[in-house]
Nucleic acid binder design. Structure first.
Lengths: 341, 341
DNA sequence: TTTCAGTTCGGCAACGTTGCCGGCAAGCGT
DNA sequence: ACGCTTGCCGGCAACGTTGCCGAACTGAAA
């Protein structure tokens, strides 16, 4: 039992032609039921597995999806698991690449996946990416792309995301309702759509509740715990320091928490804090941190489903844009007016 | 610019044969330097990319490594990144599958990867796995396997791991030195080698420092925060409750911490706690949790290097066993006698 | 008997690539 | 003029699979 069995082996053993075996295995109409049985039996015995390479070469389809993500943090790895689940079910294999938030790396990844002859892409763009030519070239070759989570108007493709504006809104609204007056926001890089949408939600909440917007309370910084830490220290050093902070991600919320503790301030009494993503760690730290949860797993599944639809009907699905709703998880860090739990 | 260019296109445009083009591209000796230049120039212009499927089909090598891991928690994803880095450098693509600690799923994964015609495997076995026939069958087909992290004597293959016995030893030794007298251990499932080695280290430390072993302080439970939580509650309900706990993983340490807090006990004064893996969360909770760090990234890189060696020299590398040293990171949860920091 | 439809099968080519073999011409020495 | 080496190149087959075409046989209708 050395080499795996091929169609040829079966044909030889049964003294019939390759074509007949092939047809029998694919259960084609024009093959005698006796020979069909014989072929099936022998293929079972030899433990025959069709060679995927030959198949792919022949029909120019690898049944492989290239997935590019900026990293594999909690939310994204959940999304990838969602993609994986649906893809496997549909007979696809997924290849996951991390761009590490680097533009160059993202280009490298697309090239590598292209070399691997993936049938298409499911992409969440890196925060560094400002040009989308590498993706547009792929689209010109009629290779399907689905964008998820980090969606951008600069790349026209079917997309799945959460309502980030809503997420920013409910987080801010909650802080306002808790009685916080000077609410700062730690936003991500300026060009990142996701971050800007959440910021927009923040602004909309201020507007609705007639809280005056203060530009000095809006800070852009990298999606990163350390940057958030230092940004928060600066915020807290202001003459009129904020009494609450909404961060665009939990990583940043952790950084903010550390800075707040460093300053000897208490949450939620002195400072309120709300993060985004609902990573498990937010429930473990002291105080636990309120956070906006998103249906990551569902979102991944939806992305994969949309991809498969796109493969089958490449006609204008480009305008399809699925949006899921986020949900606020309230914990200690923001409950100035208690009465919960 | 629709279909990607092939060798045939180049041959036709230059009026030469396929073979010549092929040789020119591979920089073979017996081809005129002028034609070589022409071919290279045209292939550049047409943006020629060799078709990997055809190549793989021809030379029966996909340059793909199948990686199977029980999950993608902090340590394992670091290891996978290490594998990825080395593999890419060496021209390999890796396909990662999660078994979710399930035996059936692990078998499914190996089958799928086998169908994808991977050149070999790098494996960390699931905690459920007690039979290794599915892997042995692969080895009989002369497909190389490298085992990492979760190594077992039941599967003879080149392996990379950390010194788990040492890890268990230094954690326990540290607790003893801090003056803890009744040290409990939350071990993993009984059949899991990694867990047993760490337990062995614990026992060795007790022996060295002449601390009497108390079987009621040794608890086996699933690698899981909830189980650890309940197991700890039981430990703390004992008449003579332990004054320190060493957990075999940080997940379990978190569970233990929650149980300790629930009981209203203080760390490190009432109870000492040391975990394993040094996940970032251990530094963020209050109190921060001491933990045994392992060089995960390095370990992944080593595994990939070993795999590549094995591919090139399949002769008896089976006895190769690389072992890396862990390192104790001391934080608040175990510092009864202060003076650190 | 001829014709025709239906059933069942084999042969050939193709997907894109490379390895092997052999051929042709030029250059060299005899 | 002959043979030998060397440099360069083309043809063929093969990897494992499937699609297309046509052949061979059967049985029945004309």
């Amino acid at each position: 039992m050395e080499k795996p069995a091929t169609i040829k082996d079966i044909a030889k053993r049964l003294n019939i032609s390759l074509s007949t075996v092939s047809r029998a295995l694919r259960n084609a109409a024009d093959v005698n039921s006796d020979t069909k049985k014989a072929v099936l039996a022998l293929s079972e015995e030899l433990n025959y597995q069709p060679n995927k390479l030959a198949l792919s070469l022949r029909q120019k389809q690898t049944h492989t999806i290239g997935v590019i993500v900026p990293n594999l943090d909690y939310v994204l790895s959940l999304m990838v698991r969602g993609i994986d689940e649906v893809a496997l079910e549909a007979g696809f294999t997924v290849m996951v690449c991390q761009s590490n938030e680097s533009f160059g790396r993202e280009i490298l990844n697309t090239r590598r996946l292209l070399e691997s002859l993936v049938d298409g892409f499911i992409i969440s763009v890196s925060s560094e990416t400002k040009s989308f030519e590498h993706f547009k070239k792929i689209q010109e070759r009629n290779i399907p792309i689905v964008v998820f989570d980090r969606v951008t108007p600069q790349l026209i493709a079917p997309s799945v995301r959460i309502d980030n504006e809503e997420g920013g809104f409910i987080a801010t609204e909650h802080l306002i309702e808790q009685g916080y007056k000077r609410i700062a926001v730690l936003a991500g890089p300026e060009n990142l759509g996701v971050s800007n949408k959440r910021l927009e939600g923040y602004l909309n909440a201020l507007k609705k509740y007639k809280v005056k917007k203060d530009p000095s309370l809006i800070v852009h910084c990298d999606f990163n715990q350390d940057y958030a830490y230092y940004a928060t220290l600066e915020l807290l050093a202001m003459k009129k320091r904020p009494d609450a902070i909404f961060t665009i991600s939990d990583r940043m919320a952790i950084g903010a928490m550390l800075a707040i503790k460093k300053k000897g301030l208490r949450m939620p009494q002195d400072i309120g804090l709300v993060g985004f993503n609902n990573e498990p760690v937010t429930g473990l730290v002291t105080p636990s941190i309120s956070s906006v949860e998103m249906p990551s797993f569902e979102l991944g599944k939806l992305a994969a489903k949309l991809f498969i639809e796109t493969m089958h009907h490449p006609e204008n699905l480009n305008s399809v844009e699925k949006v899921l709703k986020p949900k606020l998880i309230i914990r200690e860090s923001s409950q100035k007016n208690i009465q919960y739990k």
